[in-house]
Structure formats: C-alpha cells, structure tokens
C-alpha cells in the first residue's frame, strides 16, 4: 500500500486523498495516517512543485557542477557534502561513481551569480580539488515529466 501511495503522490502530490482512497480500495483515514507516518519517518521529505521557469518569464540560471574533492582526515564524503549542501543556492548534491565525486546542482538568477558562487564559495573549500561548471541551456524533462509541451488528447470523442 505504501508503495502505491508513494507512486501516486510522486507524480501528483496534490491528488485528492478521497479519490486516492477510492482508487486503492481503502479509506481516506488510512491514507492520511500512512502519509503522516511517512512524513515522520522522513520517507516523504517534501511536496515541491515542478515549474517550467522558462515560461514564467522569470530569469533563472541553473548549472550542474562536477566537483572533485579529497575527503580529509576524520572527515568523510558526508562532511564535505554537508559543507556544500548547506548553501541555499544549492539545489541538489549527489555523491557519484566515476571520474569525479559530487554532482552539485545550483540555481541562481544570473550567470554571474552562479559563477560567483563557484569561485567565491565552492572552489575555496579546503577539500575541493577542482570543479567543472556545466550551464543548463534547456530543460526537456524533469521528474518524469516532459516540460516542452502539454499532452493533448488527440483521440476521437467517441468510438465503439
């Protein structure tokens, strides 16, 4: 049941809980309890909204930064990550396998702002060896949703 609830709210966190209960053949109270429990267990970490900023005519610049680090004595990757993710500009931090260590996603209002963050905050960190900044030019798909166009139903209105 938890997995079903999660898979629905992952795609639509605003789903009507009574509707969800009817689909899953259960009571709304049960869903409410499960959601609360999963929030407490931090399985559900938040309910953000997916926005196509390009269409909102708000200036936004985002970048994916590859970061190589040396984990320092008494300070594993987790500690280094913490130094990075606490900056509010940082959207996401992943520890990854491959030729560098962290993938850091950041967002700012202008190119300048993002570049400043990298040169003034990220690079100077003791454990950071190198960074490579990749600016995002266009977002096609995010969280499983295609940003480019809204889906239209092209079927005939009625068919037998």
């Amino acid at each position: 049941m938890r997995e079903k609830i999660l898979s629905y709210i992952e795609h639509n966190s605003r789903i009507d809980l009574e509707d969800l209960a009817m689909m899953l053949g259960t009571e709304q109270a049960m869903i409410v309890n499960e959601l609360e429990a999963m929030e407490n267990e931090h399985i559900i970490c938040g309910y953000p909204t997916l926005i196509n900023w390009d269409k909102a005519s708000v200036e936004k610049v985002s970048a994916l930064i590859e970061v190589r680090v040396t984990p320092q004595r008494g300070m594993g990757f987790d500690k280094v990550a913490e130094r990075i993710y606490n900056y509010p500009e940082v959207n996401a931090v992943y520890l990854i396998s491959g030729s560098y260590d962290f993938m850091v996603s950041i967002e700012g209002h202008t190119l300048r702002e993002v570049a400043d963050f990298v040169s003034a905050k990220l690079s100077p960190l003791d454990s950071v060896l190198s960074t490579q900044t990749n600016f995002v030019l266009k977002k096609y798909k995010d969280h499983g949703i295609i940003m480019a166009e809204k889906h239209v139903d092209e079927r005939e209105k009625v068919s037998l």
Binding site: D153, R155, E156, K157, V158, S159, L160
Partner: peptide
C-alpha cells in the same frame, strides 16, 4: 448503419464536452 449515429452526430457538434466515450487506450 449503427443505430446511434444520431447520438454521435450530436457529440461531434460539442467539441467542449468531456468524453468518457472512447474505446481505445489513453
């Protein structure tokens, strides 16, 4: 011809109607 042609013709004139009328997957 299918007896409900008439009904289908009315549907065709109401493009704004919400349909639960199709026989194919969404």
């Amino acid at each position: 011809p299918s007896g409900i042609r008439k009904f289908f013709d009315i549907v065709a004139e109401m493009p704004e109607a919400i349909s639960l009328g199709v026989g194919e997957p969404d």
